[in-house]
Design a binder for these strands. Structure first.
Length: 302
DNA sequence: GTCCAGGTTCACG
DNA sequence: CGTGAACATGGA
């Protein structure tokens, strides 16, 4: 592998505004970023990539030269005007506080297949454990990505046909538990061509959601994660336990609400960028928790 | 040991 | 139709 500096296309600098790379990559929407010495490394599609933020710049390095960086600009959603997004969200003290604490947190645009499998695996699992299972899946079944000299091995996310060829027991051996048959069924649907996730980008939210929810192990919440994090439906608003508690305590104090009622509220209340509101609420709830953030157990809320 | 985790499904009244 | 238990596994 040749020295990076001598080869144009191996490095790129992107000017950004209102972008918090660390919060974005570590907010529980993507599970394959590794943080080391101020840099974030992962594999997007079949491309190894390392990112670093330096104030208003994001610096990217790849293993192979790029004539076109659209794949990364799209993944990071660099063209999104966050100010405009936030202006369209409803005003509420709890939401305002979450935004104030994590200004620059963005939504990524991930590859739908990886997103679907990752979130099927996410059900009743803590984020560190989701990361662990996804990593095992890639390690054991994913192709090796090309990495720069001196870098450790990195793997692509396994293809649907690779997973579809397995037995349920082989997936259970990767500690997926009751999610193993769900993963297998999703892989078979994709590998057979019966389901094309990219087609869902061009249908209505309701139709895309209903199509995803046909898959076993995919309910409203996981479907909304896939819609929001990979298919471009920014109004999708996944309600998990954290968001449910945030909505309950801040919007309906003293009035016990059930999950379907909170989902219905979120659908009518947060508008076409509701998914951003959801991500700020989720990330803020998690980082405010003393379990997640080892330091500073005190919360600075007014 | 007990409880809970970016839920969904299935059985019961 | 609404509610509660079961489902695997690991960490707090």
């Amino acid at each position: 592998m040749v020295c990076a500096e001598t080869h144009p296309g191996l490095q790129q600098r992107f000017r950004v505004e209102d972008y918090d790379l660390a919060a974005t990559l570590d907010s529980g929407q993507a599970f394959r970023w590794k943080h080391y010495a101020g840099s974030w490394t992962s594999v997007i599609g079949d491309r190894w990539v390392r990112l670093r933020q330096d104030n208003d710049d994001i610096l990217a390095e790849t293993a192979l030269p790029n004539t076109d960086w659209t794949w990364l600009e799209d993944y990071l959603q660099l063209d999104v005007d966050l100010r405009q997004v936030l202006e369209e969200l409803p005003t509420h003290p709890a939401l305002n506080q979450a935004i104030a604490h994590h200004r620059g947190l963005r939504l990524l645009r991930q590859e739908p297949w990886e997103c679907l499998i990752s979130f099927i695996l996410s059900s009743t699992k803590q984020i560190p454990h989701i990361k662990q299972i996804v990593e095992q899946l890639c390690l054991q079944l994913g192709d090796c990505a090309i990495t720069p000299a001196g870098q450790p091995k990195a793997h692509c996310f396994p293809t649907a046909s690779r997973i579809a060829a397995l037995q349920e027991a082989e997936l259970r051996a990767m500690r997926m538990g009751f999610r193993a048959p769900y993963i297998l069924a999703a892989a078979e649907a994709i590998a057979s061509g019966r389901l094309n996730l990219n087609d869902l980008k061009h249908v209505s939210l309701a139709e895309a959601r209903a199509t995803l929810m046909v898959l076993p192990g995919v309910g409203r919440k996981i479907a909304d994660c896939v819609l929001l994090f990979s298919l471009g439906f920014t109004e999708a608003f996944p309600v998990d336990v954290w968001v449910m508690r945030a909505l309950q305590s801040a919007w309906f104090p003293g009035k016990a609400m059930k999950l379907p009622a909170l989902v219905a509220f979120s659908e009518s209340h947060f508008g076409r960028y509701g998914g951003y509101a959801q991500q700020y609420l989720f990330h803020h709830a998690r980082t405010a928790s003393s379990r997640f953030q080892k330091k500073s157990p005190h919360e600075d809320q007014g």
